[in-house]
Design a binder for these strands. Structure first.
Length: 361
DNA sequence: AAGACGTGGCG
DNA sequence: TCGCCAAGTCT
């Protein structure tokens, strides 16, 4: 790191301070840092969207062991990709990932384009993910702007307003461009994410304990003004909408479970789930339509599953039938499966939990 | 532009 | 217990 001679005092820049800090305190052993090919960096970046490192690590390793190259991913079935994604959430990421792999193999000979604007056109790759792939895996000098960067810039430059505001976002990108160095861009981008997750954290930033723990504290506007916890500004919260549902847990004498593949768009898109109804009456109408002989065994307690934008209040109707088949439809979007096999499918988390408890019985 | 889109962990 | 939100993108 270039330190100036003793004759002139020299203020180290934002990026120089951060790079020095990261060399000693940054994370250098995350799985995707070991062999940062475009495929691995891309996979990790998509998994890390709105998802914490600790959650991602086992999914990343499993995914990579099953589909080690972009060609493997491109030739895989979407069902298999969703099964590998099951439990991670935001399943559009998996659908876009698969779509993107096919596109790169078909149209780019299996190699990611180096140009940031080309990367950004690909499904599931926005400006920040494109910047991460280009800088971390392809030596380009492109900035990123993830949640860590946003929080750091909001504090360092005391940016007012919430990220959801387009003008605020634009300003944050301008700061990102301004402080991101042309040299050592990969190290810098990793460093700023490390600082955000380890030091400049949302609730207990370390600077408030000891200013020396943050390499940027002496030039940070919010720190100087004692406003650190007041930035970034919060978004006003809205009440969560409540929705109701009844799930039909239908088993037959062969201990097989009936599942349906959900539509490719919307919540849990493309995943396998129990037949879902708005209420118990609709569930019974469907049962009478589909079956001549069935028994309602039990009704579960009230359960709830909370999503980002609504809360689902539901219960499960456990039904047994002697009829072996409901015809598999032409889209292959329903099936009877032994519970053990069903657990290998791409399942929403609450459905997986119910199947696991069923499997124990 | 604002809302859709999951889940697990933490205080 | 429960609200908050973490390496965003798409429509």
């Amino acid at each position: 790191m270039p330190i100036s001679s003793t004759k002139f005092s020299y203020q180290l820049s934002f990026s120089e301070l951060l790079l020095i800090w990261a060399k000693e305190f940054g994370r250098h052993h995350l799985p995707w840092q070991q062999n940062p090919t475009p495929y691995r960096v891309w996979l990790s970046e998509v998994m890390l969207q709105q998802t914490q490192v600790k959650t991602v690590i086992p999914y990343f390793q499993k995914f990579l062991s099953v589909l080690p190259t972009i060609n493997d991913l491109a030739s895989a079935q979407l069902d298999q990709v969703l099964a590998l994604w099951s439990g991670l959430g935001y399943y559009a990421r998996a659908r876009n990932l698969h779509q993107c792999a096919k596109l790169i193999v078909d149209q780019y000979q299996g190699y990611f384009p180096k140009q940031i604007n080309e990367l950004e056109k690909l499904p599931g790759i926005g400006r920040s993910t494109a910047g991460a792939i280009a800088s971390l895996a392809m030596k380009q000098a492109t900035p990123i702007l993830d949640g860590n960067c946003k929080r750091i810039y909001a504090r360092y430059f005391m940016v007012s307003g919430h990220y959801s505001n387009a003008a605020v976002l634009k300003l944050l990108w301008q700061y990102a461009e301004q402080v991101t160095p042309i040299q050592n861009t990969a190290q810098f981008n990793q460093a700023i994410m490390d600082l955000g997750s380890m030091v400049c954290t949302r609730t207990k930033p370390l600077c408030l304990q000891d200013s020396k723990t943050c390499p940027l504290s002496s030039s940070c506007s919010a720190y100087k003004e004692q406003q650190v916890l007041n930035f970034p500004h919060k978004k006003e919260k809205k009440k969560k909408v409540n929705k109701a549902a009844v799930f039909l847990v239908l088993t037959n004498d062969d201990k097989a479970i009936y599942l349906e593949k959900r539509k490719p768009l919307g919540i849990w898109g493309g995943l396998w789930s129990f037949p879902q109804f708005d209420n118990e009456k609709d569930a019974h109408l469907w049962l009478n339509e589909q079956l001549t002989d069935f028994t309602v065994q039990k009704i579960s307690d009230a359960k709830q599953h909370t999503f980002t934008h609504f809360q689902l209040n539901y219960h499960e109707l456990y039904v047994k039938t002697k009829e072996k088949l409901i015809s598999v439809n032409e889209f292959n979007s329903n099936c009877w499966q032994p519970v053990r096999d069903a657990l290998q499918l791409g399942l929403p988390t609450p459905i997986k939990k119910t199947l696991l408890s069923l499997n124990k019985e």
